[in-house]
Amino acid sequence: MSLLIGSITIGLILALLALGIFISFRIFDFPDITVEGSFTFGASAGAALIVAGVNPLVASLVSFLAGMAAGAITGVIHTRFRINPLLAGILVMTALYSINLHVMGKSNIPLLSETTVFTWIENLSNRVSGIDARTIIIGWEVATRDLWLLMFCFLAILMFCCILWWFFKTNIGTAMRATGDNDQMIRALGVNTKWMIIAGIALSNGFVALSGAMLAQYQGFADVQMGIGMMVWGLASVIIGESIINDRSVGMVIAGAVIGSVLFRLLVAIALRWGLNPNDLKIITAVFVFIALILPGLLKYRKRLTLKRGAHA
């Protein structure tokens, strides 16, 4: 059970990543691989600042801004220099690898003995419920502290979802969605689509970096490798969410991304529990996303086949 609670908590933290991918991939149809670098960038910047004694909330905010800067650079490379989205992302991701090493000074920063956002929550839990308190839910005993962490992540994610939903309903957010939907149309309505893409990819990477910073604080370390495979991971979350919630309105897709992220993390935890080799995790994620991407086409094809057969019979 405590494994379950931990998985849901991590799923909620990675939901920030899924929200970022939702912005780049679904709103702008922009396959942005910058996230693999900016996820680590957020983690490394946050960790380095926390080690330097900066307030962990401020450090997380700086991580968000750092991710936005990285995304903005990808956006500029793509819009101003007309480099295709994938290549623009690869350039920034590669550059970020060196930057991350510089920011951390080494390939790994432990945070276990530092004060993070989660230490605050643990302290709060200890003060309110007592040290080492246990709670029984549906017959299982879990550490009350873990429930506090879960609640905190849930509320934080809820807040970010509301902000994001509100943003995409404002005038500028609506124009952003239109940019991804039909850029010619929205340009004819007076919107600078280049700026919209730059701002959107920046926002996306801000969320991704924040996700990295939170994960580093939760697991107690930042590592230069931790961004690898994160784009596909986020994509898997978004796709799972979309298949569960069959509604394409902004609010529903945002909710779907969060639910997808938590479910995907749970699935992975269960698979690992059942003896899946952790080394195989990434290939399985990749195959899963591949299938999810081609499935709608396959279903349509099968439907056509059966229709044809029906016509022949």
Binding site: T170, N171, T174, A175
Partner: peptide, 12 residues
């Protein structure tokens, strides 16, 4: 909103 500045007012 054609040609006007688009801020953070409610879109619809």
């Amino acid at each position: 909103k054609r040609g006007k500045t688009r801020g953070i007012g409610w879109g619809l």
